[in-house]
Amino acid sequence: MTEHNPFMSRIRTALGHSAVQAGGVERCSALFRTTDSVEILERIESRSQESRRELLQQFRENAALLNLNVHAAAGFSAAGEIIAGIIQNSEPEFGSDRQVIQHDHPDIAALALSTRLGDGVVLHTTGTADRDLREKTIASFVGLTAPFWGVADSATVVQITMPGQPRSTSLVPAVHIALLRLENLLADLTELYAVLRRDPPASSYVFISGPSKTADIESKLVHGAHGPREMHAVVVGLER
């Protein structure tokens, strides 16, 4: 930090603050003050199954505008059927290998995909000790992740990087499937920022709202610029 001193002191001089004020905590207490989010968090905690279903409907409508396909499943078995169907109906983009990479996550394990996919599909799981993981990810045409949060208003899923849940799974394969629990569906970005403030991610994270896209050539929308060209969100937990 000390090696940045001349740089910082030039900025301080530009602002007309003296070196004595350098710490500036009092000067800035208002700057770092944020609105109390207790009410927002309580609203999320006490949300009924009925209003969660309403959020799912909003999520679905907003996702449609972004060409993000939303599927609803009662339980993990039904979700597994849906996901196996998506994989079977997709074609590899780079090469002909039918390889799929899935996050090491209990919800994904509960899908029992290895038994649902035929012999023609190779299924990889992102174990932390696997040195060939990068090659497997590049070779896969479908990436399956279990993002923690979903946001109905912007049709967003939030993927937090963790051991066994690297970021490339939702990025490098041509098709991204996100498995999301209904109870983790939030109303809007205000709710999302409130929960992120309560549970700050320990590593990098990303908001994903639909498949990769570009409109750089004559403003014409094309999906699949660099990230996945196709995205599905499978929301599980409609029973109860």
Partner: peptide, 20 residues
């Protein structure tokens, strides 16, 4: 846009064991 397709956050190198 309400939000762009990707908004990514990072504040340091990847932890050990991360393949990325």
């Amino acid at each position: 846009q309400k939000i762009s397709t990707y908004v990514s956050f990072a504040g340091g190198p990847s932890p050990a064991g991360d393949p990325d």
